[in-house]
């Protein structure tokens, strides 16, 4: 039961909240505690748009117990529009449909469940964007 972690990381997981160096403007996800570019320790929260492209992907068939109910699922590295790269699952897509470079958008989904009695972990996943009409 890692309840404190679920709680501690909720804004990062629900909102894709990273941070930005107040000195040089560098953006980070996940949050850093010192700017890796200029070593400034003053950083402010920054919410990413959730838009990005697939850098790489694979499919998980054998997972840790908390993820058992979801296999097979697709994992990926996503290049966010703003720069940082994020590790996440893809959703609403079948393995055959994924391609490197395809655009994706962030959604909040169930990531894992701590058994039948424990906490449900929600967080960012990415899916092919639902286009807006004009």
């Amino acid at each position: 039961m890692d309840i404190p972690r679920t709680w501690r990381l909720r804004d990062q997981r629900y909102l894709l909240q990273g941070n930005q160096c107040e000195e040089c403007g560098e953006l980070y996800f996940p949050k850093v505690f010192i700017c890796h570019k200029c070593r400034c320790r003053s950083l402010k929260d920054y919410q990413f748009s959730g838009r990005g492209t697939v850098y790489s992907y694979s499919t998980v068939y054998q997972a840790a117990p908390n993820f058992d109910a979801f296999v097979p699922y697709i994992v990926a590295l996503i290049d966010l529009k703003e720069g940082p790269r994020v590790t996440a699952q893809l959703s609403d897509i079948s393995p055959g449909e994924v391609e490197i470079g395809m655009p994706v958008e962030m959604v909040v989904r169930k990531i894992s469940e701590d058994g039948e009695r424990g906490v449900i972990n929600y967080g960012y996943k990415f899916r092919p964007p639902i286009p807006l009409e004009e």
Binding site: R5, L9, P30, S58, V60, Q62, A63, A64, F67, F70, Y73, V75, V86, T87, A88, Q89, I111, S112, N121, G123
Partner: peptide, 12 residues
């Protein structure tokens, strides 16, 4: 926090 808890196995 950012790989394993997102469902990534080491093979993945």
């Amino acid at each position: 926090d950012y790989e394993a808890s997102m469902g990534l196995s080491f093979v993945a």
